[in-house]
Structures are given as C-alpha cells and as structure tokens.
Design a binder for these strands. Sequence first.
DNA 1: ACTCAAGGCCAC
DNA 2: GTGGCCTTGAGT
Length: 450
Amino acid sequence: MMTTMSYNIDNTGHCYIPAPAQLPSSVGQSGLGLTIGGPNMSSPGGGLMDYGHHPVQHDHPDTKEGIEELCPVCGDKVSGYHYGLLTCESCKGFFKRTVQNKKVYTCVADRSCHIDKSQRKRCPFCRFQKCLDVGMKLEAVRADRMRGGRNKFGPMYKRDRARRLQLLRQKQLSRPQCQAPVTLNHNTGGGTGGEVGSHFLAALHGVPTTAHIYSADGIKQELIQIPQLSSSTSSPDSSPSPGQQPLAASQGQHFVTVSAGPPPPGQPMPTQQPPHAQTPGAPTATTIHSPVGAPDLMKWVTAGPGATSAGGGAGTPTAMSPKNGAHFHYEGAPSTATGSLSAGVTAIQLTTGAVGKIPALIREFQLSAPDDKDWQSQLFGLLQNQTYNQCEVDLFELMCKVIDQSLFAQVDWARNSIFFKDLKFLYYKHMGGSAPTQTLLMEMLHAKKK
DNA sequence: ACTCAAGGCCAC
DNA sequence: GTGGCCTTGAGT
C-alpha cells in the first residue's frame, strides 16, 4: 500500500499538517507541496546527553561515563542541536535536504516503517515523518539559506541543555557514592548581579533558569533551576501563555519575612507585603533561618535590591542581626514592625500601638500563611539533597538555592492571596487574557472606589 | 576570541 | 540521495 499525506503553509507562516510538528515560518511563502505522512512514532528517549557538536566529541566528560545521547530519529550518535533538538548529522542533513528541496516522499508500506541507523535510508517518507514527530522544526530551516549565525532557538537549546544536565546531575546524586567531586558555582548571569532576581522573575513566569556547574575537570556546564511549583509543568522550551497560571499553591510554601518600602497611602502597616504589592526597586529583605547542621552562612541570608543597604523611603530595615537567628526591625511611618526568625519559630511583632486591633486584611494574610514547620522541613530537605553525596559543596550555591526557595514560596503565597486572585479576575474580565496596562489598572481602581 | 547551529560541498 | 566534514556568522 502506498500512502501520501500533504501539508501547506499559508502566507502567515502557518502550516496545516496532521502531525505534531512545529509550524514553519521561514520555509517558503507559498505552499511547500511536500508530501509526507506516517504513524505517530515516539522518541526512543533513553540516554542523557552528548554536548559534542560535529564532529561528535567522544571525549566529552559525559560520554566518558558512558552516557551518550542518541538521535531520536534513527538512534545514531547525536552531533549537536539541529532544527530544534539533538540529532545526528545524517538526520540533520536529511531534514535540511527534504525541507530545502521540497521533497515529496511516499511510503510503499503502511507508513509505519521502523527507522533506525541501518534502515533509515529505506523509507524517507517515514524518516521525515519521524523527524517531525520527534520535534524537528521546519521553521529552523532558513528560507533565505543564510549561513552561520544563530536563530531563535538558541535559548531553547540552552534551556534544554540545562534540563538535561540537571537530570544527569540528579542521576549522579542518586548514586551511592560520590563519583566525581563537583563544585557548584552559581551563575553570575553576565555580571549583572541579578541572578537571584532573575530566578524570582523566572518563578513569576514559571520558567526555569540556569546556573552553572563546574565539574572537577573545570568544564563549565549548566544547571537548570526549576521553580518548585506544583502546577508548573511546562517544558523548558515552552513559554507561558498570557492566560497561563505559572504559579499555584505548593507544599511548604511560606512567606518568610519581607520588609518593603514605605506603605502606600491608606495602608496601615508595612509588615508582610506581598511581592506583587511591592514597587520595583523597593528595598526587600528575605530572612531565613537555617536548619540544624547547615553551614553558618545559611543563618543569615538577604536577597533583593537594596536588601542590606539603607534603601529609600521612610521605611527601611534599621537592624539586621546575622547571629542567633535572623532578625530585622522595620521602622516606617506611622508604625513599625519587627519580625524575627529563630529556633524554628517565626514571630511577627506589631509595634504600631495597634496590637490587638490588627486590620482584618493583615490578619487574613497572616492566617493564610502556611505552616512554618512545613517550610522548615522543606528547606531542610533541600539542603540535605544539596549536600548529600557531594564531596565539595559551594556555600554560595546553597545560599542561592535557599533564597530561590524562599522567593518561590513568596510568589506562591502572593499568588494565592485574596488580592492576587482579585486582580486576576479583573484583568481577565477586562483584557480577556492579555496583560493589564497601567491605565487599565487605574481604571479598575477607580471602578472599585465607585 | 570562542561557540555552535546554520548552510554548503563533495566523495560515495 | 546520503552523510561526513567544512564554512559561516550571530551570539556570548
């Protein structure tokens, strides 16, 4: 039986094809006239990675350990990222020729030919179908045939690489003995000093960010930082849609302590400001007490722009003690708040003269905060995972992880707060899913006042 | 300067 | 037509 299947690309770059392939935008403006087809074939998966590019670098540290990525199409050795994913050199060439030359293949069988290294030449129809099925991207083939340079998939490759490396690392950590000392160094993010901030933003958007691992032989590799969010199941290469909820409640969420800038008019207390209520650039301090046995450095961690500096505005952290549990004192007109974390107990003292008559909204915030013990045990677990089976531990990396954890928890908490839900409702109602503008937000506030 | 994913070349 | 190697050039 001979079967064919066709797809077309319209002038907007959309391709109509009965396969889970990405749609081309750069491959011709008119119909491609390509005839393809085949069964839904799944990637063989397996293996982890081979960062070598052509020619394949067989002396890469990963391949040294016998871990080698196989081409998801034919099972041959991958030579690098090609058209959206790690493939071998021959499938790269095959895919390129097929798309560039607008090849039309037919399958003489039932569109379910097995494709492997020895049989990949037999049925180009099924081979190309498998290329599409595993995710090779038509739009990565350049219509103008321009050589060199980079395309839009660069960041995706980076994230995928990082994800794979983290999987590899998790695999290594699960081994009974530490096989190779690994020093963890947090990525400085191009020297902007914004790594923690970028992780925070990544959490807001539900996308993983990367850090770097330096293996014992000095080779820099990437470590992905996947926000620990219960509802975030997006793959590294998927971007959140405007209507997507990147964050949701997760276990162990806890808003540790945050001191922020001066309270907005009408706000009675600057105690636990939800992140979404903070103004950009406002001084933010995150204070965390380490679990028993963690390095001393962990006892006192601050994060965010102006965390320990004087900051601006009427309300600034005036005292922060790194010893015997973190402690901060917040002074902001017209009231002050003091928070402390020590010996596993989080205490928020309100010294406004309004103790006993805390505004209902703040009480609600406090009540909605998850159990402190949950948070601590989660943090302890994180640190255990980080230090267990590691011959060498980078304290800075640990600090960053703890900060990340707390920031993600803050975001979780904020998103689950009544205010955030309220805001989301309004913005869906008004915008139908697109981001609210400043003007729109003002309108909403006015509407609420009325 | 280096990286690496594009396209190109050419022996098979 | 295939696939290994080379050249290119934007991004880092």
